[in-house]
Design a protein around this nucleic acid. Sequence first.
DNA 1: CATGAATGAGGTTTCATTCAT
DNA 2: TATGAATGAAACCTCATTCAT
Lengths: 195, 195, 195, 195
Amino acid sequence: MPRVVDHQERKTMIANAACMVIARDGLDAVTLANVGREADCTTGTITHYFHDKEEVLTAALDHAIETMNARMVRRLKKNPEDVLGFLCETLPLGRRGREETKVWYCFWSRAMHDNHLAKSQRSMHLRWRTRVRDLLLGMQTRGVIVLKHDIEDEAEALCAMINGLGLRATLDPGEWPAVRQVRLLEDYLSRLQTA
Amino acid sequence: MPRVVDHQERKTMIANAACMVIARDGLDAVTLANVGREADCTTGTITHYFHDKEEVLTAALDHAIETMNARMVRRLKKNPEDVLGFLCETLPLGRRGREETKVWYCFWSRAMHDNHLAKSQRSMHLRWRTRVRDLLLGMQTRGVIVLKHDIEDEAEALCAMINGLGLRATLDPGEWPAVRQVRLLEDYLSRLQTA
Amino acid sequence: MPRVVDHQERKTMIANAACMVIARDGLDAVTLANVGREADCTTGTITHYFHDKEEVLTAALDHAIETMNARMVRRLKKNPEDVLGFLCETLPLGRRGREETKVWYCFWSRAMHDNHLAKSQRSMHLRWRTRVRDLLLGMQTRGVIVLKHDIEDEAEALCAMINGLGLRATLDPGEWPAVRQVRLLEDYLSRLQTA
Amino acid sequence: MPRVVDHQERKTMIANAACMVIARDGLDAVTLANVGREADCTTGTITHYFHDKEEVLTAALDHAIETMNARMVRRLKKNPEDVLGFLCETLPLGRRGREETKVWYCFWSRAMHDNHLAKSQRSMHLRWRTRVRDLLLGMQTRGVIVLKHDIEDEAEALCAMINGLGLRATLDPGEWPAVRQVRLLEDYLSRLQTA
DNA sequence: CATGAATGAGGTTTCATTCAT
DNA sequence: TATGAATGAAACCTCATTCAT
């Protein structure tokens, strides 16, 4: 009788370990040995669950995204009109946020030259942007903001702004305490309220 | 006398070759052999001019930054009030722009875990942001815009916006023709005009 | 379970292979490839068991020392009063002795500029000298010799003599058959008998 | 008109520079670049005066030997009966002595696997030993010592003793101040006086 | 399932040597 | 005579991957 192991749970654990390594030491530090050390298993175990390294990386990205997404969803469920709170989940505000966004950002440069990762990133971005768009629509409906331009463009612009803020905050954390990130995001949103 | 060679020019040539490799195939494809192939020399020649690979990468980043900066300065000299034109130089609009920004972006993720690169990036960002700030100040003086918030924050926000737009355009070029990038940048600037 | 291998035994085997290479072709011929050829494995296997080349060299030195030491101990156990026999184990008398001492001697020059090896050498020398001293003391007790000088100095001097003889014998084997080495060592010891 | 340069003097200067490098950092640190740095010239200059690296090393060894020999000769001229003084010139007593003997010792291990160097070492040893022998003969004639064994063996034994002492002093300088080296050498000589 | 030993390709780096100037 | 640019061989080391157990 084979040892009973939840296959999917094991994969997730390894993907999570990979995320830890990425967040701590960067994508270039991701070796199967390092991931194994973090996940407390050997390289053999990893290749048992993943065909090759690329699959591990993809799983790591997916894991980070799903975790972030889950938090966003949870937040929205609590209060569907808390747009700022929702958006803040994608900024590196706390320790958790910093880790997750770092993983996300690390894959940007790789996605530029890896079609597979690029697709993954695009579909993930699409989902995020769609939600952002719907929230903007809701705000407009409620009269909170007035969108002067194409709604898709507005959503894209907001996403770009958030990515830009998060990036800068990650590259220069000393200059970017949470309050400053939030303040600049609020400033951006406040400009949309103009009649 | 030895073979006559302009030492600095040779270094620049190699740095440029490294940029080409980065823009085409990404940071992970930067091997001394690849750079040598691009620069039409051997790995030995490269290490003759650079102590090690890290120096080559740093030189590549510096080269890309300097090239971009030179274009910005040239543009400003022609017309010191063409703020939009100035900002567009840091967007991946044409072939050259796409190449240069790609090199720049590729170093973001590495800077997150490499203190040396981080410093280089920060000082470069500071220079850029300072210029952006001064231009915003000029616009305010000319009455073109009305800044409601801290000027440093405004400059940072604009930089973040541009980085975000450029990033998205690079990750999903199909969705981001030059006109769209410029349009969204204009939209952002137009919101600053509000009385 | 993985391929069953005695980790320590494998390390010893590789260290021994390194010794063979050193004895045959010298320290400068010690490349991981050469050691691998001797040990019938690849460079990858070697770095699997040793962190880097320096560790391989250290292990080789330790191995040679331990082997020589084991022979000395064995000899002493058989006949604790056979001082000459004991000392002869550190001379390049036979094929085995020539190999082991050669490895030992090769590390002298390296120890002069490598602190780590220097320490290893010193501790090994201390152990050897201590034993030599105790044997000299025993001989004095038995009335075989009369030590006129400080016992530590006497031990050091004897060690130096043996190293000097072994060195000359190694550099000019044609002039130094085993009998000559032993004769000169006996001459030295006989002078200690003087009343 | 070609620049006037004393060819031989230039070679000596380079050989001396190589000795400095060897004494300071060991044989493995001898790269043409390092020697050039020490001699204040380029690698090109070195290969202009020496066919290849091996020639540089041979010249370095010869240089060190000649320097030491010159000192011995000078000493003997002053007082042909000062045997101890003569022998002390081959021990690492002062700064100069330490440097020269270090160079000498460094070549031992290399000579074990390099026939060319081995010959060089043997002829140099022969010269030294012959002189030592003649001095011993002189002492016997003067009645200072009584040689019980073959004179060649006695000379060899003394040489071996000196090499052994010098080696130990070099490997463990902390334990071997000049006085101790001289004392042990004197002890050895004193035993030859026995009637 | 899991291990970790073994491989070997591929990368960086060093350096003696050649050679145009 | 001297330079130092360029080469390329050879070394070390890393690491994804395979596989016997």
